[in-house]
Design a protein around this nucleic acid. Structure first.
Lengths: 330, 330
DNA sequence: TTGTAGGCGTTATCAT
DNA sequence: ATGATAACGCCTACAA
């Protein structure tokens, strides 16, 4: 990969580097450089396939036009789709995106923040892990522009983009009740994350409202031991003879349904449920699965918009976007 | 984001920038700098949370320690998982990864290559789109280190990592035949991609070998119109009274199974199939779905290894890794 | 209208 | 054992 710098072009045309720079960076307002010279330079640049050296540019300008995206799990469709859209909108604004993965581990999150900031990203979009409050607070102290997506911390005042977790969960649970369920189970992560806690709260309050809240039907599963925990949770709930169930995330939903099938629960007739997030798998089943659909594209778009405002307009007021999720019953 | 540079540390400690650099870049072999000074510097660096400026480093060194990964579709689990592992292994070698997406479009691929090379990535891992031969050839001319993954072009001599597409498809089809199928359908992309063509060839040759090849049972679907095309394809195959079916990709498999279910085909008794790639969805079904499993982690690892060899050892011999896929029947 | 020169943060060479 | 300095390629204030 032979390098063509401004200097090379300048020498070939016997003009100064400054002139070339002026022309090629598009800063030649009101004809500071003559048409003739400008044309020569432009042509030569194309001929030699000039590409600016982004190290030099970044060093000089202090900006990289690169954003960091830190997600909890790239191999999860929800985050994959989010990444897709974030990339798309970032590109429209002239930014590239570096994606990094935390696997829901706070130590990895710390590592990835280090990695990305040392690469001088101009800003960060983050789905924070549990117990990562101090990391987020450090970002604020360091004045690193960032936006939280999908998750947030009620104790920290930050930009974020999230769905109306509480309300949609409340409504979804009401729907189960309307459809006749009286003994409803709940499967949630054993984590202290605000977004999933809100989903849980929404569900439980709807149950309490209807006077059918049975604490023994609330089960928690660990991220690190998901398969086993979901399996056991479902077994117990089936033993409790539940007639409806609410899953609070994507990954729990899939495993949950799988285990219901495995336990030979007659889902068509004796069990109603609500899952979180759309999934190909649901379309394969011989019965339809109601689910809560997050407007992922819009979330990505908003996140980019918030972040870029913050970076380019030095906008320091924190903004919080709550976008509405949708209950899909077909 | 206040910046802490070598200079800041040097001034605070009244030593030279050169000394600080030596210590912090870990180049202080055989005690060129005294233990005492070294310790002071190290402590100060932690205290001030020093982070090297990668632009300056890159400018000086001519390397970014960043790789580009160009995939056809980030929201597809196969590529998501591939990205996950590539990132993992790259990190172990001290490289970061920028992920970009082409949506199977050659123009987007060109754009992404431009984007990434202008950001001085040291190398590229690419799942090329159809008709992108010239782009790949240009990478070779430009001496940009790269590795193709999942797909390759038989007409171009490049590094690549792929599975044994022909063989595994041949074997999978034989399995269908062994299990009693005599009228087998095939659903493939209407694309001229070597990897899927090989899968098709493997299947057809197994059918010919057994004297049960019926060309009317080979259907092609378009990426841009996948849902409709798969639906129609399945309808026609069902009309042809097939008793077995082979899907050549991930996305086709999921839609294919979905439509079989929709057409009320009795999969447990009257239809056998082989899908490509593992999928959560398959575990939800009340029957088991045989599928071809690609060793994604190994593919990612090999790709990184090949690429880094090429970058760091200037290794210019092209290497081709064929890794074995596995037919999973449980 | 165009050129000169300084500096961004690092590393590496050469002095001291 | 440590310091001074040039260089990487770009941008920009200022000079000509």
């Amino acid at each position: 990969m032979k390098r063509v710098s401004l200097k090379v072009i300048a020498e070939e045309l016997s003009v100064s580097v400054a002139t070339v720079s002026l022309v090629l960076s598009g800063k030649n307002e009101r004809g500071r450089v003559s048409q003739e010279v400008e044309k020569k330079i432009l042509n030569k640049a194309v001929e030699l396939n000039y590409m600016p050296n982004s190290f030099a540019k970044g060093l000089k300008m202090g900006r990289s036009k690169t954003l960091g995206l830190i997600v909890a799990d790239v191999s999860n469709v929800f985050f994959g789709t989010l990444a897709l859209h974030i990339q798309e909108y970032a590109e429209k604004e002239g930014y590239a995106v570096i994606i990094a993965n935390t696997n829901e581990q706070e130590e990895k999150m710390e590592k990835m923040i280090k990695l990305l900031t040392s690469r001088q990203v101009d800003g960060l979009i983050v789905t924070p892990t549990e117990k990562s409050e101090k990391l987020i607070e450090r970002l604020i102290v360091d004045k690193m522009p960032f936006v939280l997506v999908d998750r947030s911390f009620p104790t920290i005042n930050t930009n974020f983009v999230m769905i109306n977790n509480y309300e949609i969960s409340y409504q979804a649970t009401q729907k189960l009740i309307e459809r006749g369920c009286r003994n409803i189970g709940l499967l949630n992560y054993h984590q202290n994350m605000y977004h999933t806690n809100e989903r849980k709260r929404g569900c439980i309050e709807a149950l309490q409202q209807a006077n059918i809240y049975h604490p023994e039907n609330v089960k928690e599963v660990r991220y690190e031991n998901l398969k086993k925990d979901v399996e056991n949770g479902i077994k117990e709930l089936v033993k409790n003879k539940i007639d409806g169930i609410f899953f609070t995330t994507n990954s729990i939903s899939i495993l949950g349904v799988k285990n219901l099938v495995k336990q030979n629960v007659d889902i068509r007739n004796s069990m109603k449920m609500v899952c979180f997030d759309e999934n190909d798998a649901f379309y394969l089943l011989p019965f339809s699965v109601p689910f809560i659909k997050q407007p992922i594209e819009k979330m990505g778009q908003r996140a980019i918009q918030l972040l870029i405002d913050q970076i380019e307009k030095q906008n320091s007021t924190t903004e919080k976007y709550i976008v509405d999720a949708e209950l899909i019953i077909k």
